[in-house]
Computed example of a mutant assay.
Amino acid sequence: MTNNKTINYFKCFGEKILTSGLPDFESAALELYKFQLENNLIYRAYVKARGLNNKVVKDLIDIPFLPIGFFKNHQVISGSKRHFEGFFSSSGTTGSITSKHYYWSEDFYLKHSLNLFQREYGNIKDFHVLALLPSYLERKGSSLVSMADYFISQSESEHSGFYLYNHKELVSKLNVLAASHKKTLLLGVTFALLDLLESGLSIPKNENLIVMETGGMKGRRVEMIRESLHQVLKEAFQVNKIHSEYGMTELMSQAYSKGDGIYNLPPSMRVYLRDVNDPLSWSERSQGGLNIIDLANFHSCSFIETQDLGRKIGEDKFEVLGRFDNSEIRGCNLMLN
Rank of each mutant, 00 (worst) to 15 (best):
S228V: 15
E213L: 01
G331R: 00
L133E: 07
C301R: 04
S105R: 02
L197E: 06
E315H: 10
N40C: 15
G51A: 13
T6K: 01
P134C: 02
D275H: 15
I225S: 02
I329Y: 00
L187V: 04
F10P: 10
Q254W: 08
V211Q: 02
L273D: 15
D62V: 01
K218T: 04
F108Y: 06
N115R: 10
S91H: 01
I292W: 03
L265D: 09
L114W: 02
C301P: 12
V76P: 12
L186V: 09
Y43L: 09
Q231F: 12
E235W: 02
K241E: 15
N240D: 15
V176N: 10
Q154S: 10
R139Q: 12
V145E: 06
S283G: 12
S78T: 15
R330Q: 01
A29P: 11
I152D: 06
G259F: 13
T249A: 03
F88A: 08
K72Q: 09
Q36Y: 07
T6S: 07
S286Q: 10
K11M: 02
G215D: 05
F324C: 00
G141K: 05
L37R: 04
F191R: 00
K183L: 06
Q287D: 12
W104V: 07
E227T: 15
E305S: 13
S244V: 02
M269I: 15
K16M: 12
T190G: 00
A255G: 11
D316P: 01
Y9A: 08
L18R: 03
L52Y: 06
N123F: 03
D195H: 05
E319D: 07
Q254D: 01
Q287T: 15
Y256M: 09
A131R: 00
Y121H: 09
L186I: 06
T98H: 01
T306S: 13
N123C: 11
T249S: 09
D59T: 14
L144N: 02
E328N: 05
F35H: 11
V57D: 04
F237D: 14
K11R: 07
P64H: 08
V189P: 00
R285Y: 10
L209Q: 06
Q254V: 14
K218N: 02
Q254R: 15
S302E: 11
F10R: 01
R274V: 15
Y43N: 11
D126G: 14
G51C: 12
